[in-house]
Design a protein around this nucleic acid. Structure first.
Length: 354
DNA sequence: AATGTGACCAACCGCTTTTCC
DNA sequence: AGGAAAAGCGGTTGGTCACAT
């Protein structure tokens, strides 16, 4: 037995709103308010619309002080950090961004921000692949997998002995499987890059990982009472200068939040920082093989992003080529020299399959 | 010029939560 | 306390536009 519909579906108009409908709804609500009953409202003003549709139209479009488009870098960063903390709770995220609606933020995330964060990463891979010096090294025959691994001797997570000698990476996913499209996956990536800073947390996916030094949720601290790190945040004074310091084990990656510093420096570019984290912290990809396929699992794997809204697949590539693309700049490697090896947990373990 | 493709966004759908009686 | 109605919410769809071929 289903639930009664909220309105007579046969007699309601669907689709885009006309200016006349907008004007009617806006004028009525501005004069009388919603009356606490959206369902009854369209009848009162002679609109052949579902009450839910009226509510949505008002909240997402007609309401005063609504901002559309033109997200700032600061807003991007806030969205990202909140997404790390709470996932796709768009209404909560929207509450932190005056003038933005949950629908807007959701659309913005799905169509642009995800790509902004991850697209640059792909470009980097592409350019590395095309790096002449690397291909020369490969031609010289020094590009065996072990040799590549030896390049990582400064980084315990990439040591040769931890690379399975005879196991090439399996193809873990079907071509049809969406990867970057799923919120959990994206969030995991962000968490891995920006949070999960202590090795003892590695098995606890439920832990809220981020330690942003600003007050994200002044209105609803009780929501996060189980998350000590967030609790700490709640005691921090809110302010226009929002800075989120992601303390990454073995090093500090400082992601400045907001544009107060002019937004021009490296540390103010969230996407850039993510890129650096990816290369600085390969061990942080533990559990992220679904996301790291572009880097680590490209052998014979033809990335096929079927979803139109998240297009832009990359070329397939062999294992050697893939490894070559992962050569880190020496400065980056040296930054990792003080990582603690977390023991059994190792990136390469994935390649042997579950 | 016609067609295809991808990006963007408004709106819908259906499930969950809250409120009211 | 419990059931129904309303509101809230997040995922998804479909229309439109711009650009590429």
């Amino acid at each position: 037995m289903g639930r009664a519909p909220c309105c007579d579906k046969a007699n309601v108009k669907k689709g885009p709103w006309s200016p006349e409908e907008d004007a009617k709804l806006k004028a009525y609500i501005e004069q009388h308010g919603t009356g606490g009953n959206w369902i009854a409202l369209p009848q009162k003003i002679g609109l052949k619309r579902c009450g839910k549709s009226c509510r949505l139209r008002w909240l997402n479009y007609l309401r005063p002080n609504i901002k559309h488009g033109g997200f700032s870098e600061e807003e991007d960063n806030i969205i990202c950090s909140l997404y790390i903390s709470i996932g796709s709770r768009w209404s909560i995220i929207a509450a932190q961004l005056p003038g933005r609606t949950d629908n807007d933020i959701k659309n913005y995330w799905n169509t642009r921000l995800k790509k902004k964060l991850l697209g640059k990463h792909r470009k980097e891979i592409q350019s590395r692949r095309n790096n002449k010096q690397i291909s020369q090294e490969m031609k010289k025959g020094s590009a065996s997998r072990d040799n590549y691994c030896n390049n990582y001797n400064n980084n315990p997570y990439w040591s040769a002995e931890t690379v399975p000698n005879n196991v090439l990476p399996p193809i873990p996913y079907s071509n049809e499987e969406p990867r970057f499209n799923d919120h959990t996956s994206i969030r995991k990536l962000l968490i891995k890059l920006g949070g999960r800073f202590s090795s003892q947390d590695d098995d606890d996916d439920d832990q809220l990982p981020i330690n942003p030094h600003y007050n994200i949720f002044p209105a609803a601290p009780e929501m996060f009472s189980s998350a000590p790190l967030i609790d700490n945040c709640l005691t921090a004074a809110p302010g226009p200068e929002m800075e989120c310091n992601y303390k990454v084990e073995g090093g500090v990656d400082n992601v400045a939040m907001g544009s107060t510093g002019g937004g021009g420096g490296e540390s103010s570019n969230f996407a850039y920082e993510l890129e650096q984290m990816i290369y600085n912290n390969p061990q942080k990809f533990e559990g992220l093989e679904f996301l790291c396929g572009d880097i680590f699992l490209m052998n014979n794997y033809n990335n096929n992003y079927n979803r139109g809204d998240f297009g832009g697949g990359i070329m397939s590539s062999g294992w050697s080529e893939m490894m070559s693309s992962m050569v880190l700049p020496s400065s980056v490697v040296s930054n990792n020299s003080n990582y603690e090896d977390s023991g059994d947990d190792h990136l390469m373990r994935y390649n042997a399959g579950p």
